[in-house]
């Protein structure tokens, strides 16, 4: 099974300041990056977003869900084959577009 990690960005507003999920995750699944880069100033923390980048390494321990103060993280598991099928379709579409 492979994790599907959902973040509710209406609830998660200051991921870099909070960083609880980043800190607790035993598998370092999350990444917290800027959505904007500005010339002459740092990106505002509100322009940072968490994502479950390495979701294929998630064990499903649930620590991130427990530690999140706003309840913004949802982790569900899907059969690997279901996801594999979905990504194969994406790949086929990509190849089709390239060859057209």
């Amino acid at each position: 099974m492979i994790a599907e990690i959902g973040i509710d960005y209406n609830l998660c507003k200051d991921p870099l300041g909070c960083r609880k999920c980043l800190s607790v995750c035993p598998s370092v699944i999350f990444v917290c990056g800027p959505t904007k880069i500005w010339k002459g100033r740092e990106t505002d923390p509100s322009e940072y977003r968490i994502a479950g980048r390495y979701f294929d390494k998630c064990s499903g321990c649930g620590d991130c869900v427990k530690v999140c103060p706003t309840g913004a993280i949802k982790v569900e598991f899907l059969p690997r084959e279901q996801l594999a099928q979905q990504f194969r379709i994406e790949r086929a579409a990509q190849l089709k577009e390239r060859n057209s």
Binding site: I2, G33, I37, T43, R53, D56, A84, F87
Partner: peptide, 21 residues
């Protein structure tokens, strides 16, 4: 900027993970 590509040389990770799975 794509938050998923933050970190040194990370731009392709999202695609790599899909290909792996």
């Amino acid at each position: 900027a794509d938050p998923q590509s933050a970190g040194m040389g990370a731009g392709v990770v999202a695609e790599l993970v899909k290909a792996r799975i």
